[in-house]
Design a protein around this nucleic acid. Structure first.
Lengths: 137, 137
DNA sequence: GTAATTGCAAAAGATTTGCCCCATT
DNA sequence: AATGGGGCAAATCTTTTGCAATTAC
């Protein structure tokens, strides 16, 4: 395999991601990285995010509501909650029941590499007309 | 509320979606719609897909692997399986256990409007080295 | 020294939008 | 006739890429 280098840029990006809990966009990571590396380019941020994603160090989340991808440092499995009002993207625990589902039993599926669970709604901070229940689609 | 019109374009788009099982992209819908309405424009397709999505008649799926959004006529709740090799996007039944999860119990969540479950892997048609198991993230 | 990686800028891809005309109601 | 919606093209937004220069190893 081809060898990879530990560049300052890559380290800073990963550190930023590990230190943030708000699932920043590439653009946001870029803005923050510039405070440490004023010459870093957005292209480099994207290249590194893709690299880190492919290594499994970082997770990319594509909000179903549209807009840019958001990222987090991949640690323990969890689901995501996305607030439609303030766009906050929060980690939430996985329904324990989901961890044991065997999707391979579907005859159309041969192997599963990952399962992504997104819950969309409004967060307590925005909290309009709570208690409406939920529908899984 | 403002009243909406039943245009030929909107009807054709919805019909195409109802008649297809492969979760077409806007582009694909556009190509098919042109066989019926040779002058329809891609912008119109996008505008109608957004409209229908907002009405709840259509569902937009943003593949976590990137690329264009894909659409289906929203009927009964189901999850999606996405094959990494051939890009097929298939409806799969929801794990029954998921239907009853109450996400509102999380203190950060006030109301849930929808839950999206994406399973990514390889389909039986592609089937390389099956049986690797799965990881929920 | 070598090649992976960067910065820059241009390109590509996907989706949205302004504007003027047409068609549904 | 009023106005929502369509067609076209330009604009926007996000992400990728080619290339020459740089830097980690």
């Amino acid at each position: 395999m081809k060898k990879t280098r530990n560049t300052r840029q890559r380290g800073v990006i990963l550190d930023l991601l590990r230190g943030s809990h708000d699932h920043p966009t590439a653009e946001a990571i870029y803005r923050n990285a510039r405070r440490v590396l004023p010459n870093i380019s957005l292209g480099t941020v994207y290249r590194n995010l893709n690299f880190l994603r492919d290594q499994g160090a970082v997770r990319e989340i594509r909000p179903s509501e549209g807009g840019s991808s958001r990222f987090d440092a991949a640690d323990t499995p969890h689901a995501h909650f996305h607030c439609l009002h303030c766009s906050a993207l929060l980690d939430i625990p996985l329904p324990p029941t989901l961890e044991s589902v065997r999707f391979e039993e579907e005859e159309t599926i041969s192997a599963v590499s990952l399962v992504d669970l997104h819950v969309v709604g409004s967060c307590s901070g925005c909290a309009p007309a709570a208690g409406a229940g939920h529908s899984v689609q």
